[in-house]
Amino acid sequence: MRTLIVEDEKLAANRLSMLVKELRPSWDVGQRTDSIEDTVAVLGEEQFDLIFLDVQLSDGISFEIFNRCEVKVPVIFTTAYDEYAVKAFKVNSVDYLLKPLDKNELSDALD
């Protein structure tokens, strides 16, 4: 499994990759982007099995990514505040996690 972590805060990205590593030691969690621009570019070039997507990115709201390119990979949204939950369900999200992230919730989402 190869994941992409889209997150504009380094500490938050660290925390997430650490948790995923703990729960799924075999997964490749090394890929990161921090903006819509970069994410769209990376998605065009590489293949992933799962995307962790923060809603508020450094250059806008991540839903914009779905307008720009087709995303067939399942998405787990992570956000600090839940006003976007409804919108998230319209795109192919498998779960919606609130920050600070909870290990058990993440575990449930991965299952």
Binding site: E9, L11, R15, K99, P100
Partner: peptide, 18 residues
Amino acid sequence: NPHFLFNSLNALTSLVHD
């Protein structure tokens, strides 16, 4: 705003480890 609070708390969860 709440974004600020929750984002800060999230940053804190990784700081606690690091």
